[in-house]
Design a protein around this nucleic acid. Sequence first.
DNA 1: AGTCTGACTGGAG
DNA 2: TCTCCAGCCAGAC
Length: 113
Amino acid sequence: MDRQQPTAAFVENVYALVREIPHGRVTSYGAIARALGRPNASRLVGYAMRHASAASPAIPAHRVVNSKGLLSGKAAFGRADTMQERLEKENVVVRNDKVVDFKRVFWEPLDEL
DNA sequence: AGTCTGACTGGAG
DNA sequence: TCTCCAGCCAGAC
């Protein structure tokens, strides 16, 4: 009888967790969903991130990519290469819209938080 | 209420 | 490694 939290609260938790991502590391939508107790809500995490630019304080949304290390959300940033620039500024190498050595820079909230 | 869409994911071919 | 597909949750029409 595990009842899940309301969507609004879930979205707030998503933002809170994303702010915990260390500088120079990245994580995935699915990892965030699992860490918040809703393993099947990865699409909902994506929905939340798409509206993240309106949240305050600012959210390091560029540190969230999909399970394959692809910058699937880069279109939501100002310019087409803004997301990649922010990542490379943190020494995260991006090539062809994909994080190089994704496994190495991946941050698993369940393990490291 | 029914249908489509999306910053998703894992498995199959 | 790549493409395709079903399952998934919520919002827009």
